[in-house]
Design a binder for these strands. Sequence first.
DNA 1: CCCTGATTCGC
DNA 2: GCGAATCAGG
Length: 187
Amino acid sequence: MAWNDERVELLKKLWSEGLSASQIAGRLGGVTRNAVIGKVHRLGLSGRATTSRMKSHRPRTRTAANARRVQQKTRFAPQGNPALRALYQPEAEPFTPSVEELVIPPKERRTIQTLTECSCRWPIGDPQAADFHFCGKTKVAGLPYCEFHARRAFQPPQPRRREREIQEPRIPALAAQGSEDKESADV
DNA sequence: CCCTGATTCGC
DNA sequence: GCGAATCAGG
C-alpha cells in the first residue's frame, strides 16, 4: 500500500493526536506498526518521548534479553536435553527431504496402537484423519525419533541474510549433494 | 507475556 | 523510500 498524500495527512494527524504507531497502523490499514514508525521518521516528525538515554548510542551487540526473546519467537534450539543439544548443529545447511523420506509406506506405518518401544514417534498427517500415523522407523538411542526425523526436528534456524553474507561461501559441490536449499516444508 | 518508539539496512 | 527485524525499554 502506497503512501499517498491522503494517507500521509492522516498519519500526521493521528500521530499529532498522540496515537501509538500500532493504533495508527490499525486505522490506516495495509501497513504494519513498523511501517508507520519508519514513515514517521522519514517525515521527520518523530521525537516522541522515549527515555532520553535510550536513544543515545545503542550497542550493536544483541543483549541476552533480546536474544532470549528472539529465540522464543523464532526457532527452538534444544536446551534442556543434552542428547538433543548434541544433535543441534548450528552450522548445518538446511536440507530438503526427498519424497522417499517423507512418505512412509503403509506397511511401515505405526499407529498409536502399533507403536513399539523402538518406533520413531514422528507424527505424520492430521491427527483427526484416519490415515494419521507415526514414522515407525527405528529410533536413535535416547531419542524419540529416527535419525532422519531427529535431524528434521532440530534443524537450525535459517540464518538471516545479513549474517549469512559474512559467513563462508557455500561450496557448490557440497551444497548440491546435501540440499537444494529451500524453505523448510512442514512435513 | 503484552506493549512502546528507534534504528539498521536489504530491497 | 520502504519496512521487517532488531533493539531497548515499560
